[in-house]
C-alpha cells in the first residue's frame, strides 16, 4: 500500500513539473505555480492517469499470473510467469492473426494515406464542381454506423469471394478510414501557403514535382497523423473482423482472442487473452512514440513572413 502511494506521488510530481515546463509557452501556465492550484493540478492528473491506466495494469497483471492464481483478485501477482506469453506464441491461435493484423492494417494505412494525400490536395487547392458534396459525403460515410452495413456486406462478400480474405477486410476499412484521412490531410494542406507552390512552379517544377518536393514534405506531420489514425482504426476493429472472417486466413487479433482455447476444456483462457491484449498494445505504443517526434507543429515556420 505504501509503495502504491509513493508511486502516485511521483506521478503527481512529474505531472506538475511538466506543466511548469510548459508554462512559458502558454500565457496562463504560470497559474500552475501558485501552490494551491499546483496541488489541485497534480491531484487531477493523478486521478486521470490512475483511472485510465488501471485497466491496463490489471490486464498486465493477469497476463503475468499463472492459471492457479488468476482469480485471486490481487493487482500484484504473487509469482510472475511468462507462461501465458509462451502459450500464445506456440499455440498457433495467435501468431497467424497477429500477422493478419499487421499486414491488413499496414496495407490499409498505406493505401489510405496515398489516396487521401492526392484527394486532400485537390480539395485544398482546387475549386471543382461538387467539392462541397464530396466533403460532406465523405464525412457522412465516416459517421455511418458500421453495424448497419455488416449484414449486406456479409452476403456480398460471400457471393464475390471476398469473404475471409485480406482484401475483404481492407476494403471496408478503407471506406471508413479514407474520409478521416482526407479531412485530416486537407486541413494540413490548407495551412501551407499557396505561394510556395507557385514559387516552385516558377522555379521550373511541374505540378506533380511541386506537390512531391514542396507540399508533401511540409505536410508530413499531417501524413503521419492520419497514418496513425487509420492504423489504430484498423488495428482495433473487432466488428468487421468477427463478421467477415471464418478462419485464421484473415481473422485479426481482436477477433481471434475470442476464439482462444485453453490447455484444458475446463479452464478459461483468461491469461492468454490478457497476454494477447498486452502484445497487441505494443505496436500502437511504438507507433505513437516513433511518430510523435514527426508530428511537430511549426514545420512551415520561416516559409513566408507572417
Amino acid at each position: 500500500m505504501t509503495a502504491t502511494t509513493l508511486g502516485a506521488e511521483q506521478v503527481g510530481a512529474g505531472g506538475g513539473r511538466n506543466l511548469e515546463a510548459g508554462g512559458p509557452r502558454k500565457p496562463r501556465g504560470n497559474r500552475a505555480t501558485e501552490p494551491g492550484r499546483s496541488l489541485g493540478w497534480k491531484l487531477g492528473v493523478v486521478a486521470i492517469v490512475a483511472y485510465a491506466m488501471f485497466p491496463v495494469l490489471w490486464i498486465l497483471s493477469l497476463s503475468l499470473k499463472s492459471d492457479a492464481t488468476i482469480a485471486d483478485g490481487k493487482l500484484i501477482p504473487r509469482e510472475i510467469t511468462g507462461q501465458n506469453y509462451r502459450d500464445i506464441f506456440t499455440s498457433g491461435e495467435f501468431v497467424r492473426p497477429l500477422i493478419n493484423s499487421i499486414g491488413i492494417s499496414l496495407i490499409t494505412t498505406l493505401i489510405a494515406v496515398v489516396i487521401a494525400a492526392f484527394a486532400a490536395y485537390a480539395i485544398a487547392r482546387l475549386d471543382f464542381p461538387g467539392k462541397g458534396l464530396l466533403l460532406s459525403g465523405a464525412l457522412a460515410i465516416a459517421m455511418f454506423p458500421p453495424v448497419s452495413i455488416i449484414g449486406p456486406l456479409f452476403d456480398m462478400w460471400r457471393v464475390t469471394g471476398l469473404y475471409d480474405t485480406w482484401p475483404g477486410l481492407i476494403l471496408p476499412y478503407l471506406t471508413f478510414a479514407l474520409p478521416l484521412a482526407i479531412w485530416t490531410l486537407a486541413a494540413f494542406f490548407r495551412e501551407i501557403p499557396f505561394d510556395l507552390e507557385q514559387a516552385a512552379q516558377v522555379d521550373g517544377a511541374t505540378p506533380y514535382q511541386a506537390f512531391r518536393k514542396v507540399i508533401l514534405p511540409l505536410a508530413l506531420p499531417g501524413v503521419f497523423t492520419s497514418a496513425i489514425i487509420v492504423f489504430i482504426f484498423c488495428w482495433n476493429d473487432f466488428l468487421f473482423s468477427i463478421s467477415l472472417t471464418s478462419t485464421q486466413n484473415a481473422r485479426t487479433v481482436p477477433a481471434a482472442t475470442a476464439f482462444f482455447t485453453a490447455s484444458s476444456n475446463f479452464v478459461n483462457p483468461t491469461g492468454q487473452i490478457a497476454a494477447a491484449a498486452i502484445v497487441v498494445t505494443v505496436p500502437i505504443i511504438i507507433m505513437v512514440l516513433v511518430f510523435q517526434r514527426r508530428i511537430v507543429a511549426g514545420l512551415t515556420a520561416g516559409a513566408v513572413k507572417g
Partner: peptide, 20 residues
Amino acid sequence: RAPKDRDLAMVFQNYALYPH
C-alpha cells in the same frame, strides 16, 4: 506556356522560401 516553361524568376512579396 506553363510558368515552368517561361524561364522567368520571381521574388514573392512574402519570399515563399521552402521551409524544409
